[in-house]
Amino acid sequence: MGCTLYLFFNFFCPKCNPFFFPLSFNSTIRHQPNYVETDIRFTHQSLVERSKAGHSSSQYELYSLYVDAMYNVGLRFLGNKEDAEDIVQDSFVDAFRNLERFKYESSFGAWLKRIVINKSINHLKAKRIDLVPMEQHAFHLSQEEETMENEAVDIKKVKQGIAQLPDGYKQIINLYLVEGYDHVEIAEILDITTSTSKSQYHRAKRKLLEIVKEL
């Protein structure tokens, strides 16, 4: 028991655990290094490499640079501040523990965001929040809905509408419209087929348009 308590408190001690950082989602970073990059994949490369070498100050600097953005990603999926904070903290711990696996196939931010999204979706799955059931055939927008799609919409209303979507629809909308993943990537993330991703997205978009029109 004593050993368990020792490990528990050490995990939450910044001096004892280099992977733990206090959550501060609204903090302002006053001194951000001015890195000149030629490829977005290598953004903050020197920080990443020093973090791989175990430099806690570089890890904290990476954390400070990305924590607010990652919190917003988690919050969009989970809709709960406490859950989003927990997911972001877990994501940073996993990211720094597995940093050697990061090979610059994407930017560090994109790699980290994928971790946050995967953890958020797994959290929702644990609560048994699944995709909204749909027919087997692909869904297509009607001509009327395509016209609605082309109309100018209020971004504030769109955000409010997304918040009111069923969780399954919200996942698809966030992944496609907000996070910018394509349907192949979404299918991989959600463990569904590409056609299901497309169908689910069109249904979610139709529902979103209905909500926005009522706001």
Rank of each mutant, 00 (worst) to 15 (best):
A187F: 03
I172D: 03
Y66S: 06
N10D: 11
H140W: 06
T43F: 07
L124N: 04
N17V: 00
N34L: 15
R128C: 09
V153E: 00
E82H: 11
N26S: 09
P133L: 10
Y35E: 14
I155S: 04
Y169M: 03
V153Q: 00
A204C: 13
L78P: 01
D68Y: 00
D191R: 15
L215N: 06
L177G: 02
D83I: 15
V153T: 01
I117M: 10
Y6I: 01
T28P: 00
I29R: 12
F96Y: 10
Y104W: 10
F11I: 04
Q59P: 06
A152Y: 02
D90T: 07
I40C: 02
T38F: 14
S199G: 13
F108H: 02
H31E: 10
K52P: 14
E146I: 09
F96N: 01
N118Q: 08
F92G: 02
S142V: 06
Y60I: 04
E179K: 05
A138I: 13
A69I: 14
F20G: 01
N72V: 13
L141S: 03
K81T: 06
A126E: 14
A95S: 10
K103R: 13
A84V: 05
T147S: 08
E149V: 00
L78V: 03
K157V: 05
M70I: 11
N10I: 00
L65S: 04
F108N: 00
I173G: 03
A126F: 09
E85G: 01
I172Y: 08
E149T: 01
E149P: 00
K198E: 14
I129R: 11
N17R: 04
L175Q: 00
D90A: 09
Y176C: 05
I40W: 01
L65N: 03
P22F: 08
F8V: 11
L23Q: 03
I192V: 15
E210M: 05
C3L: 06
E210T: 07
S46K: 09
A53V: 07
A69K: 12
N98T: 13
F9H: 02
S56T: 04
L62C: 09
I40K: 04
G79V: 11
T43E: 11
E179I: 12
S91R: 01
R203H: 12
S91M: 02
D182K: 11
Q89C: 02
S58H: 12
V93Y: 01
L7W: 15
S142L: 09
S91F: 04
V93K: 00
Y66D: 04
T38R: 13
S91H: 03
E85C: 05
L112P: 02
A126R: 15
R30Y: 06
L190A: 13
N72R: 15
I192W: 08
